[in-house]
Amino acid sequence: MPPTRRHAPARARALPLLSAALLALLALLQPGAPTARAGTAPAPPAAAAAGTFTNPVVTQNGADPTIVRYNGYYYHLGTTWASHWEIRRSPTVGGLRNATPTTVYRETVASRCCNFWAPELHRLNGPNGLRWYLTYSAGVSGNIDHQHVHVLESAGNDPLGPYTYKGQVDPYGDNRWMIDSSYLTLPDGRLYLLHSFWEGGTQNLYAVRMSNPWTPTGRAARIATPTHAWEKQGAGVNEGPVILQRGGRTFLTYSASHCDTPDYKLGLMELTGSDPLAPGAWRKFPDPVFQRNDAAGVYGPGHNFFFPSPDGKEVWIAYHANSSPSQGCGGTRTTRVQKVNWKADGTPDFGTPVSTSTVLPEPSGTPALTGRE
């Protein structure tokens, strides 16, 4: 999550730790300040041996990562803080580090031009059949108190686009501050948009039924709010919801506590009812499932995404993290990945974040390179 993204005016008064110094950092992260966006990020480690890699896999624009796999390639995109989206493509996870970014969309409309945050890329059925949909948060130049959720649609089946703007998602009809959008598709085809905003002094999770990837039907329902102490470090925050489905079960990971602290972390929920909007339909697990690993030098791991291995036998998690407890919501956050394991009861086991010196094998089924870029 970008720095100071937690304070709309009322929230800024409630959270004194979100200071003028952080606002100054946000200004540095605007277009035209590349040193603040990327210059403070750690230098990438030396390349690992063929068939292996080390974290981080992306350093420039590595926060709030999405990685998808399609037609033999991995595609990565992350927060740019600017007015455009860019995607890296590689046949291997390790190859993403040096892949040349392709700009797939650039915005010129002033009301949604800037502060591009938290992109997610999903292949969904829409009015034109299967298309890629890029959902994200954006607002106006120089002010983060007007962030809203927007959706782009690809012209065809290429994740690199081109993309066209489809609309702002506003399930409340009041143009409220709203971030961290993601989709939930149920087996019967019902589509929901998950998102986060501040209400009642905390940042909560909400879901709304969608008639297509950019059009809500009715109002959203709150599905989670910070209740545990580990969700309230720095501020009471539940954000960054992402769905993980396996064996007929639907799990939801989310990021908890304030992103400016090293205690930003992941929590887990499970859909136990048939209606995601119904009270009590979600069970929240009592303990965090992925958090700082001081021994490995990993701090503030969060805002994740999931992607499959080439052979479909493994699930991998992409997430961002820092390499120092003093780093926060800025350009120091880099994209890291590791494999998800599974417990005997069928719940995911994320383990602990690995160090940047840990050599990891490419996901199972990765084919030998044949000269593809």
Rank of each mutant, 00 (worst) to 15 (best):
A8G: 08
R11H: 08
R11I: 11
A12V: 05
A14W: 01
L15I: 15
S19V: 05
A20I: 11
A24T: 14
L25A: 12
A27I: 03
L28S: 13
L28V: 13
Q30L: 14
P34D: 15
P45S: 13
A47Y: 10
A48P: 14
F53P: 01
F53C: 11
V57M: 04
N61F: 15
N61L: 09
G62N: 09
A63Q: 09
T66L: 00
V68W: 00
Y73L: 11
T79P: 05
W81P: 01
A82K: 10
W85F: 15
R88T: 05
P91V: 04
P91C: 03
G95C: 06
T100E: 14
P101S: 14
E107V: 10
V109A: 15
N115E: 05
F116N: 10
A118R: 00
P119Y: 07
L130N: 02
R131V: 06
T135P: 01
G139A: 13
G142P: 10
I144W: 01
D145C: 14
H146V: 09
A155Q: 13
D158N: 15
G161A: 06
T164N: 11
G167P: 02
P171V: 01
M178I: 07
S182C: 12
L184K: 01
L186V: 04
G189H: 07
R190G: 08
L191H: 03
Y192D: 04
G200C: 04
L205K: 07
A207F: 04
T217S: 12
A221H: 03
V237W: 12
E239N: 11
L244P: 00
L244T: 00
R246L: 07
G248F: 07
T250K: 00
Y254I: 03
Y254N: 10
S255M: 12
D263T: 12
G267A: 12
M269T: 02
T272S: 08
G273A: 09
L277M: 05
W282Y: 02
F285E: 04
F285Y: 15
P286L: 03
P286R: 08
D287V: 02
Q291V: 08
R292F: 04
R292L: 14
N293S: 08
D294Y: 00
G297D: 10
G300P: 11
N304A: 13
F307N: 10
D311S: 02
K313F: 03
K313S: 15
W316T: 13
W316N: 08
Y319K: 01
N322R: 13
C329Y: 03
T334Y: 00
V337G: 05
F350S: 00
F350W: 01
G351I: 11
T352C: 00
S355G: 15
V359I: 14
L360R: 05
P363Y: 00
G365C: 09
P367V: 04
A368T: 13
R372K: 06
E373I: 15
E373T: 15
